[in-house]
C-alpha cells in the first residue's frame, strides 16, 4: 500500500491515477451516461462529430459516443478478469517454487516455459473459439498466458529475499516457513507485483481490444472498444477519423496503466534496489 501512496505523490502518478479513476467510473456507470441507445440504428449514418453526436455516428447510424460508453465495462473489466486469473495461476507457484523442493520447482518451471512458448493471440483465439465463442473462455486463456510473467517476477523476488539475512535470522529463531513468507517475503514482493500487475493489465487491455476487434468473445451488436473500430473499418474511405475515438480510449487507459507502473517502480525503493543488485552481478567493479 505504501508504494502506491508514494507513487501518488509524483506528478506522473497523479495523472495516471486520475485517468484510471475516470476510466473506472466510466466502466461502472458509462452505460447509464450514454445519450442514445447504443444498439439503435438510424438513418443518420456516418455523420461527422457534431453537437448532437459528439463522436459522430457509425455506418448503421448508431451514436459512437453511446457505443463507446456502453462498451466500457466489457472492454475494461474483462482485462481485470484475465489479470486476476493470471495472478492466481502465477503468483502462488512463483513463491512456493523457491521453498517446496526441487522436483516441484522443476515442474513449475517447465510448465511456465511451456506456456511462454504459446503465441498469445492465436492461443487465445483458439481457446475462445473452440470452447464456445465466449468472453470468459478467452479471458481464461489470456490469464493462463499472463501467468508465466507473474510466476517469473514473484519467483525472482522470492529468490532474492529467500537468502536475505533477515530471513535466515527469522528461521534461526524458529519462525515457521509460512510466517516468514507472510511477514517478510510477501511484503518485499508486493511492490514488484503491483508494478507487474499494472503492466499486465495494460497488456490485457490490448489483447482484449484485439480479440474484440477480431470478433472473438463477443456477439456482434454488443459494443466493445475493439469492436467499434472493426465495424467502421469498411468505411475508412468515408470516415478516416472513424477509429480515432475508441482508439483514444484504449490508448489512454493503457498509457495510464503503464505510467502508473513506472511511477510505482520509481518510487518503490525496494524494487529499485533489486534492479541494482541484478545489474551489479553483471558489472565489473568500478573505481
Amino acid at each position: 500500500m505504501k508504494t502506491i501512496t508514494g507513487a501518488l505523490r509524483t506528478r506522473a502518478g497523479v495523472i495516471a491515477a486520475t485517468v484510471l479513476a475516470v476510466v473506472l467510473l466510466l466502466a461502472v456507470i458509462g452505460p447509464l451516461l450514454a445519450p442514445y441507445d447504443p444498439l439503435k440504428n438510424s438513418t443518420e449514418i456516418l455523420q461527422p462529430p457534431s453537437a448532437a453526436h459528439w463522436f459522430g455516428t457509425d455506418y448503421l447510424g448508431r451514436d459512437v459516443l453511446s457505443r463507446v460508453l456502453a462498451g466500457a465495462p466489457r472492454s475494461v473489466f474483462t482485462a481485470f478478469e484475465a489479470v486476476g486469473i493470471g495472478l492466481v495461476i502465477g503468483v502462488a507457484p512463483g513463491i512456493t517454487s523457491v521453498y517446496l523442493g526441487r522436483v516441484y520447482e522443476w515442474i513449475t518451471l517447465r510448465v511456465m516455459d511451456g506456456l511462454i512458448a504459446l503465441p498469445f493471440l492465436i492461443f487465445a483465439i483458439a481457446v475462445a473459439a473452440l470452447l464456445g465463442n465466449a468472453v470468459h473462455q478467452a479471458m481464461i486463456a489470456v490469464g493462463i498466458l499472463l501467468a508465466p510473467s507473474f510466476y517469473r517476477i514473484t519467483r525472482a523476488a522470492a529468490l532474492n529475499h529467500a537468502n536475505a539475512q533477515y530471513v535466515t535470522a527469522s528461521q534461526l529463531f524458529g519462525a515457521s516457513m509460512w510466517w516468514v513468507l507472510r511477514t517478510h517475503v510477501w511484503s518485499k514482493i508486493l511492490p514488484t507485483l503491483v508494478v507487474a500487475t499494472a503492466n499486465a493489465t495494460a497488456g490485457g487491455l490490448l489483447i482484449v481490444s484485439s480479440l474484440t476487434f477480431l470478433g472473438i468473445g463477443v456477439v456482434p451488436p454488443e459494443p466493445t472498444w475493439g469492436g467499434i473500430v472493426a465495424s467502421d473499418l469498411s468505411y475508412l474511405t468515408q470516415v478516416p477519423y472513424g477509429p480515432v475515438f475508441p482508439s483514444l480510449f484504449i490508448m489512454a487507459t493503457v498509457g495510464a496503466l503503464n505510467l502508473l507502473a513506472d511511477a510505482i517502480r520509481d518510487t518503490s525503493g525496494d524494487y529499485g534496489r533489486a534492479r541494482i543488485l541484478r545489474r551489479g552481478a553483471s558489472r565489473v567493479r568500478l573505481t
Binding site: 484485439s210 476487434f213 473500430v229 478516416p240 477509429p243 484504449i250 490508448m251 498509457g255 503503464n258
Partner: peptide
C-alpha cells in the same frame, strides 16, 4: 516509444492504411 507501447496492433495497422493507402 511510450506512446507506441499503448497502441494496439490493429490501430497501428489502420492508421498506416489511412495514411499510406487513403490519404
Amino acid at each position: 516509444t511510450s506512446v507506441l507501447a499503448t497502441v494496439p496492433g490493429f490501430i497501428a495497422a489502420i492508421a498506416l492504411i489511412t495514411v499510406f493507402s487513403l490519404l
